[in-house]
Design a protein around this nucleic acid. Structure first.
Lengths: 184, 184
DNA sequence: GTAAAATGTCTCAAATGTGTGACATTTTGG
DNA sequence: CCAAAATGTCACACATTTGAGACATTTTAC
């Protein structure tokens, strides 16, 4: 039997990523269940949202960590982690979006923020190494590169949703645009 | 006297860009008026949204058209139009977002879609010229480049909202990431 | 200063979204 | 096939959002 709870979470990530205040009915529709069933798994909107964030952080952190460990070489790590980010797809971008919302106050004290930072700690650390070594174009900042990375993931997702490009072609293009775009 | 209608539209573009289903009260707050006043100018949510789209298309189309006419050279046109896109900021990205929504059916017959296409007709036409001439990296598609362009605008906006980069620095970085990212 | 225009305040009805109980139906696993 | 679990259907109370009327207050233009 398919895991209803999981499919509702995946649906919620898709829907909320496009429309944060979307009615729960939209999420239920996307997950192909009734609103009543959704409420059997999640007490309310907040609980669903929390579970989404937990799921996202878990998936992204694992993928990034695995990619990090595929190599000792910072340059190779960058590429592996980049592809890992692509594979996390909308989970990746949704997490980043929540973190950059206008009314979102960024504080280290804030639990969710520090968890966000943790998620991309390895990624940003590796970026810093490449910056210091001069592999990446001067003038770039870690924040710019990170935002740029997230944006390229969005482009990749869009191209998959309606474009004629195969996944492999899109991955190639994405890496090209990202790596050249940061001056490698 | 300041133009209330216009400031409500600007506020709505900001708010809806982050949260499509945000309550109108948020828009009113952002525009520093009462919800009652908002409703004096706009019959309902749909009318406000339509006015936003109209405003956006007008602003983007004018900016792009002006930039197009600054030069006869496709390569210089590209750069001028890129900066024009940056200057349109969230108007630019919101229009693109609406156009790439999941439940949005893209059809040439659709009036809004064709208007969207019109808005970036010059931009895409110029891209095609550069692609054909081989100035831009092969393998790139006009759609990819256009999505990529929109993404870089988002990075630029984010960097302005909370980053330490000056507008001029951010513009430079943006052009670097974009131009290199498409293989110029 | 004054009249007109614009906006705010208060109020309310309608529409929409939310969460849950009761019970029917379907699906699952043995 | 059968009992249990999961899900759907319907109904309901409640909260929030929406749109507008009536009137007070403020702002604008002259």
């Amino acid at each position: 039997m398919k895991d209803t709870e999981q499919s509702i979470i995946e649906a919620a990530i898709l829907i909320f990523n496009e429309d944060l205040s979307a009615p729960l009915e939209k999420v239920a529709d996307q997950a192909q269940v009734t609103r009543r069933t959704l409420h059997r798994y999640f007490k309310d909107r907040k609980e669903l949202m929390d579970k989404c964030q937990k799921e996202i952080r878990k998936a992204c952190a694992i993928a990034m960590s695995n990619a990090y460990n595929t190599s000792e070489n910072p340059r190779e790590r960058l590429e592996a982690m980049f592809y890992a980010g692509l594979d996390c797809g909308s989970k990746n971008t949704f997490l980043h979006k929540l973190h950059t919302l206008h009314d979102h106050k960024h504080q280290a004290a804030n639990e969710e923020c520090s968890e966000y930072d943790d998620t991309f700690e390895l990624w940003k650390g590796n970026l810093q190494v490449l910056l210091t070594k001069g592999v990446i174009n001067q003038g770039m900042t870690v924040d710019w590169i990170h935002n740029f990375f997230q944006s390229v993931v969005v482009v990749f997702i869009n191209s998959q949703q309606r474009g004629p490009l195969s996944r492999a072609e899109a991955r190639q293009l994405a890496w090209f645009s990202f790596s050249k775009g940061i001056g490698i």
